[in-house]
């Protein structure tokens, strides 16, 4: 708690003393009204310093992990939801000052009635506003049906089915767009949830797998510039830019293990600030310990479609057989 500030005639700022909370906490850097409080560090930031801090941390992540290099064509996987919207806004601000890096976007229409229509409209508006090239591709075009149709009677499998189809759709769309990097809006919460889920499943290879650097030319490397920005920080960033849209939640999210893990981690983060960041740090340490020790999966090709995969038949071809039953 800050103390010692004087009261104001407007009453906006209560007279503060050690045992009375101030009505509006102040920015640690400029004393402006704080809009964000980082409970882990205790830091308060005003609008301007919060925005600058988010953009600097994204730039630091990109530089330290070498996510984008000169000459890259970065294609954003733009659903039109909050994370990919924030990603586009931040990259559009950062990248013009970087050497010959091109930015564009692709959108996947999975065919989820009552959910995807709104976010696709939002994506369309955003790319027009920023003047970016934008391509769309649908599950119907690629796989012959909507996700809703594929999931009839198998709703509990929604996230794994959608994940396999969406991964393929994004690869096709990014390839058509001529991408050298595919940027996704995964945030700190998403990444911490994935770490925890992989631990729960005992899946060490997946825990240490880095989709950005181990592509070995088999697919377009995926990058996650928002991996250290929390979901809440993203929401605040959008709100401060007037870009927050109250969009619906995916109707299939309730079926996922991730939903349970999300609730559990949110509760832990609330009680023990920094929990999600600590999970990410654990992952980094495990990666370092495992470097070069895990047996590398041989590069194989699906005997049905020819795509790279780890078994004889890729996940997509296996799934397609069950979808047609």
């Amino acid at each position: 708690m800050r103390s010692g500030s004087s009261g104001s005639p407007t009453g906006d700022e209560a007279v503060a003393c050690d045992d009375v909370p101030v009505k509006t906490p102040r920015c640690d850097r400029c004393s402006g009204p704080a809009v964000f409080h980082d409970k882990k560090t205790g830091r308060h930031l005003c609008r301007e310093h919060f925005i600058a801090d988010i953009e600097k941390r994204v730039a630091d992540t990109i530089r330290s992990k070498n996510l984008i290099i000169p000459g890259d064509h970065v294609v954003i996987a733009l659903s039109g939801g909050k994370d990919s919207t924030a990603l586009l806004m931040i990259l559009a601000r950062l990248l013009p000052s970087w050497d010959s890096v091109r930015l564009s976007a692709v959108t996947i229409d999975e065919g989820i009635a009552g959910y995807r229509e709104d976010t696709i409209r939002s994506a369309d508006r955003l790319v027009m506003q920023y003047g970016l090239d934008h391509a769309s591709i649908s599950f119907t075009e690629l796989f012959g049906g909507t996700l809703d149709a594929f999931l009839k009677g198998r709703e509990p499998e929604a996230c794994s089915v959608c994940g396999i189809l969406r991964r393929k759709a994004l690869n096709v769309a990014a390839d058509r767009a001529g991408a050298t990097k595919l940027a996704t809006g995964h945030n700190l919460d998403d990444e911490a949830q994935s770490v925890f889920m992989n631990v729960l499943r005992g899946d060490l290879p997946r825990l240490v797998r880095d989709s950005g650097s181990d592509s070995k030319g088999r697919f377009i490397p995926r990058i996650k510039p928002l991996m250290f920005i929390s979901e809440k920080e993203i929401a605040v960033y959008l709100m401060l830019h007037g870009a927050w849209a109250d969009l619906p939640e995916c109707p299939y999210a309730v079926h996922a293990l991730r939903g349970e893990v999300r609730g559990m981690l949110a509760s832990l983060e609330s009680k023990y600030p920094g929990t999600m960041l600590h999970l990410m740090e654990s992952k980094t340490r495990i990666e370092a310990q495992c470097a070069g020790r895990l047996e590398e999966e041989p590069v194989r090709h699906c005997r049905e479609c020819g795509d790279s995969c780890s078994g004889e038949i890729c996940q997509l071809c296996t799934l397609k057989k069950t979808l047609s039953q």
Binding site: P25, H37, Y115, V236, E249, C250
Partner: peptide, 25 residues
């Protein structure tokens, strides 16, 4: 109408809007 932090104080004369961070996207 203005974003505030968790340690800010709300009083009887205030209008307080709670916005849920929607998932997905």
């Amino acid at each position: 109408g203005t974003l505030v932090t968790e340690d800010a104080v709300v009083e009887n004369t205030d209008e307080v809007r709670i916005i849920r961070i929607a998932h997905g996207g």
